[in-house]
Design a protein around this nucleic acid. Sequence first.
DNA 1: ACTCTTTATTGTAATATTGCAATCAATAAA
DNA 2: TTTATTGATTGCAATATTACAATAAAGAGT
Lengths: 109, 109
Amino acid sequence: MGISKTEIFTEEQNMLAKFAKVLGHPARIAILEYLFKRETCVCGDLVGEIGLAQPTISQHLKELKQLGLIKGTIEGTSVCYCVDKVAWATMKRALNSFLNHDVQNPECC
Amino acid sequence: MGISKTEIFTEEQNMLAKFAKVLGHPARIAILEYLFKRETCVCGDLVGEIGLAQPTISQHLKELKQLGLIKGTIEGTSVCYCVDKVAWATMKRALNSFLNHDVQNPECC
DNA sequence: ACTCTTTATTGTAATATTGCAATCAATAAA
DNA sequence: TTTATTGATTGCAATATTACAATAAAGAGT
């Protein structure tokens, strides 16, 4: 149906999926990498840096913002976007603990 | 357009996004968690464990298999699915190095 | 007030994803 | 051979995502 049955999964599973999902597009990966690389971070730079139209970048930024991963402060006509340190750490912790699962039985398959 | 412009991004960005994307659904998170928990791992178990129809589970398994994260060996009428140790380690390494980015300038926003 | 710059929003088209009923393929058991 | 059993595949409907042109909104500079 194109809609996820979130209600049958645990809070943690849904949270992990949400974090992973927002990282599941190369444009958002590129945006985050750029924000990490720069000290000053303006959306206009991103449109120049990444080869996507301004509305598309704006939409990807919105998705990152909705998860709290980035925050934007208005500076005159432009907006300064940065990675939210706390939210990033939270995501990192969650994904890391999932990724740290080990394959129990290497003889199985 | 519902299609990602993968050609304008680096190999690494596309790879990271692909890995993250496949983790971006709670059913696939649940499947992987179950495979980590169990020694014997059959698709039928998953249908019982997770509240989704058999074709849906089969489809999620297919996506995980396509990325090489899991592998399935036929055992009689059933299929034994397991996490691929090497592929999992590769993904873990890739995502970890991305997640390890640090916020440079906490004074920015 | 007018104009420019910058970002957000709206509307729309194309494609992708999610989910399941129905069905198929293959092996096992009788 | 017939009859389960198990999992994959097909076909379809509903929804989501991606992308961008057009436009709006808001402040800066003239």
